[in-house]
Design a binder for these strands. Structure first.
Lengths: 113, 113
DNA sequence: CGATATGCTACATATTATGTAGCGACCTGC
DNA sequence: GCAGGTCGCTACATAATATGTAGCATATCG
């Protein structure tokens, strides 16, 4: 299974060879800590270390890897006050905001069920 | 780190101990293949084998693990025609549908950028 | 200079995924 | 009633990732 076609330098996003952007996106977001990172950056920029604390002290190794992935994807960027969402990242964020309310309902349906 | 509070039987969703449903949800969705599975089930039920094919022949080991996770979470269920979204799962799906269009724009902004 | 914070990396260990094979159960058609 | 097919699911060895701890080089502030 060739995973790299047009982007050999690093790990290509899985599914990126299919020409279906949604697959590449789902793969990126499906990596550990990725969603959490985007969530923690939802309303403020955070330094890499502050982000680490916010993410239950996840190991810096993966965190840096994900930050690198997300930067390559153009969803976050490193500014003067730490990591923050780009315009594109904020677009994605808007897609995810309803998730919060869903999570509440979901949690209750789990407890009830 | 105690990962189980109210559901000792299996692996508890990470962050489920925090009392913040969003964390539990983000952890669940952030596991490999989870988002992809939900996506593939978006408009039809699939047998576990058909789902495997749809997911680029992912290994049955993880796939079954994720199906189990998603069933515990009440997002999918095994019916007569294979795995399908529950009502709650479909609610979540609705949250994710805009992702498709975003992926298209994102892909273009990457190519352009 | 000393103290502190930044982004980031090394590396040994634990955890998780991959790939291949195969199980028992349940349908068919013969 | 027994081949032949599918179903959901599991075992197990190997490869890939994550974890946790430590530390680097740089920058800022006193």
């Amino acid at each position: 299974m060739a995973k790299s076609v047009s982007k050999p330098p690093k790990r290509a996003v899985r599914g990126s060879t299919s020409g279906r952007p949604i697959m590449a996106l789902l793969d990126l977001l499906g990596r550990r800590w990725t969603l959490r990172i985007l969530w923690e950056l939802r309303e403020r920029s955070l330094t890499s270390r502050a982000l680490r604390e916010a993410c239950d002290d996840a190991s810096p190794t993966v965190l840096q890897a994900r930050l690198s992935d997300l930067r390559d994807a153009g969803l976050i960027a490193l500014g003067p006050d730490g990591y923050g969402l780009t315009d594109t990242g904020r677009e994605l964020q808007d897609t995810f905001l309803p998730l919060h309310r869903f999570a509440e309902r979901w949690s209750k349906s789990l407890a009830a069920g």
